[in-house]
Design a protein around this nucleic acid. Structure first.
Length: 294
DNA sequence: CTGTAATCCTGCGAGC
DNA sequence: TGCTCGCAGGATTACA
């Protein structure tokens, strides 16, 4: 269903006041920022808010377990972060839509919606803040097991897509490609922004069915995904309002959007007016001339 | 197999 | 000016 022009305009204006959910490039930026601040540090105290995050899993005695643990490494898989600890366990973190995972001086004022504070041995604090609480922070007893579970539930990292299997996977599905790109069990880490940007780069309409894409088209799409993700990581992700990296710095990729949030504006390639439709329950921005439906 | 929609949640702008 | 309303969406689940 195509929204009317006034509706499109309304959505366009609302797009830039909306929080941007952290997708793979944002989470990767957080991981890179956190590593120098966190690896080698020891947790000396833990405080939690009473509010429930999405699907939190914490074994009994978590504070006793955590205190004295040193951070061995920070890993990223798709949109998940694992803070690996010396005891063999890890903190498994998902930023949801509005999550912020930062290291700040202990003297920094505690902002609203701060759900976890991990005090560190250098006088700083690792904090998890999440206004909408779509994110999660879980303590797992085994980092290896947590990593294996993620691997069993998630598809390829974008930079590690198997070209042949990707092509087969795309062409064996009747689903709209937009829905397919959001499916974390196929390619993991893509969210609404980078799905739209990848489809624009590949010149594929978001509603195009996988079966309709040529073998060459699959190659174009795979490379488009990889280039969009790589460029976004270079720009430290996209900040519209709230997303920040692990050191609190904002991203810059929002200045490079070709279609996302640009409803009613001119296509960067052909100047045709960018449109928005709903696909897979998500707003999907595209150029009707560059991305013709097949 | 496919899609749709509700669920969790808060912030914010539009409109009255 | 202050209220209500609708919308934004990641992951999951229920249902058509």
């Amino acid at each position: 269903m195509l929204l009317s022009y006034p509706s499109s305009l309304r959505i366009h204006h609302s797009a830039f006041r909306t929080l941007v959910m952290p997708e793979l490039p944002e989470v990767e930026t957080v991981a890179r920022d956190l590593r120098p601040l966190l690896v080698g540090r020891t947790i000396t105290a833990v405080t939690r808010s009473k509010l429930k995050l999405r699907n939190p899993w914490w074994p009994a005695g978590e504070k006793a377990y955590l205190i004295g643990q040193r951070v061995l490494a920070i890993h990223r898989r798709a949109k998940y972060l694992r803070v690996e600890l010396t005891g063999g366990g890890c903190l498994l973190v998902h930023l949801g839509m509005t999550g912020q995972f930062t290291v700040v001086p202990a003297s920094a004022p505690t902002e609203t919606h701060t759900h976890f504070v991990f005090e560190l041995d250098d006088g700083k604090q690792l904090r998890f803040r999440d206004a909408r609480r779509f994110g999660s922070v879980e303590l797992h007893a085994s980092d290896t097991a947590a990593a294996a579970t993620l691997d069993s539930q998630l598809g390829w990292e974008p930079n590690d897509i198997d070209p042949v299997e990707f092509t087969t996977g795309v062409r064996s599905s009747k689903r709209a490609l937009k829905a397919r790109l959001l499916d974390q069990t196929f390619v993991a880490g893509i969210g609404n922004i980078y799905a739209d940007e990848s489809l624009f780069r590949a010149k594929i309409h978001p509603e195009t069915r996988g079966v309709k894409v040529s073998i060459a088209g699959c190659d174009v799409l795979r490379i488009a995904i990889q280039q969009v993700i790589a460029k976004a990581i270079e720009s430290r992700g996209s900040t519209i309002r709230d997303y920040v990296g692990g050191s609190g710095l904002r991203g810059g990729f929002q200045h490079e959007f070709a279609v996302y949030g640009r409803t009613g504006e001119a296509c960067v390639s052909c100047a045709t007016t960018i449109q928005v439709i709903r696909v897979a329950g998500r707003s999907s921005h595209f150029c009707p001339k560059c991305q013709r439906k097949k």
